[in-house]
């Protein structure tokens, strides 16, 4: 699973560089997230702008990625495409995660 981490002073943005977090990718995604969040303690924003499809296995892997970060360390989501947003809305997981429409506000705050 291709993840690109960008470190800012106050947060880390992790961009998923693949189009699907599905049953075939769920375990690789969770492992890659563990590696990408192993160092540091600040909040993480998961940029899902390239992801067009998440099934329930992928949803579970995103929840697991947050839980494995431990403690109260925050995992927010950003840039959900329509079908992905629908999965979060239907399962009410949109009430569990803070979801950002885009990354601009986050970047401004992080670098300003």
């Amino acid at each position: 699973m291709n993840l690109h981490a960008t470190h800012h002073p106050d947060l880390t943005i992790i961009t998923v560089a693949e189009a699907r977090i599905d049953a075939a990718a769920a375990i690789r995604f969770k492992d890659a997230m563990r590696a990408a969040t192993a160092t540091g303690a600040g909040p993480v924003v998961l940029d899902l702008g390239n992801v067009t499809f998440v099934d329930s296995s992928g949803l579970g892997a995103i929840v697991a990625a947050m839980k494995q970060m431990g403690g109260d360390r925050r995992l927010d989501l950003a840039c959900l495409t329509p079908d992905v947003a629908k999965v979060f809305r239907l399962t009410r997981m949109d009430t569990v995660f803070t979801i950002h429409d885009d990354l601009r506000m986050l970047n401004t705050r992080a670098t300003g």
Binding site: A64, M66, K67, T91
Partner: peptide, 14 residues
Amino acid sequence: HDVARDALPEGGFG
């Protein structure tokens, strides 16, 4: 979904 973070479901949505 309104449970402690450690108890959040990772499956059962299908």
